[in-house]
Amino acid sequence: MSIDRQADSVKDFMIQAEKVSYSVNLDGNTLPILHNVSLAIGAGESAAIVGRSGSGKTTLLGLLAGLDVPTAGDIMLDGQMINTLSEDERASLRAQRVGFVFQSFQLLPTLTAIENIMLPMELSGIVDAKHRAEALLERVGLAQRMKHTPRQLSGGEQQRVAIARAFAVAPKILFADEPTGNLDTHTGEAITELLMNLNQEQGTTLVMVTHDQQLADRCQRLFVIEAGLLHEDAAVSKTVTAV
């Protein structure tokens, strides 16, 4: 599938993986996690990666986001080959173009809600971080909880703050790892709604790993990973308009 798409135009893909393999060394034994994975996701597309626990989906997400580099194969992110970049260069790339939402929220416990949102903006040198953070908090419905620390917020509220943080630097790509995994169904739905809406408003490319069928269904494309091998569920995936 992706090979044909790749032939169309490389520039149109926000994320592209080519024959990516990844293995880890465990007590002297090589344990393969991903094997020859290839995919291409266009700008503005939303993609879900599903699979059983331990199938390698989170590892793939990490590799696509440049948190680590593959053992073999190439990964392009917004036109840049990231597996040849140094760790610091990948970090700079993330600071400018990538946002994250995690299953366990990953808010800094010592910072208030607004400070957690301001942090990535300050790291990328955005000047009016405070005003933008206030606007984002209002957007996620937490204008009244600005000065509260994560411990004072519920799980759903923490994830809203995390989403606001993820969109704070106006990233081109948003990676989400089980964003509703720690939330009840009702809260999960609300978070899904918020995430998809924001994604649409900002025209972000969204890649998420999820177990949540409802959330996966909201994505334009669906990838299934099984024992380190990836294939696209063509029946689910819709036609993509290249940006």
């Binding site: 760790e87 970090a91 790339l93």
Partner: peptide, 12 residues
Amino acid sequence: RVALLKTLGLTG
């Protein structure tokens, strides 16, 4: 914390 800061784009 360091892993998170790195994810948010802080260099080594």
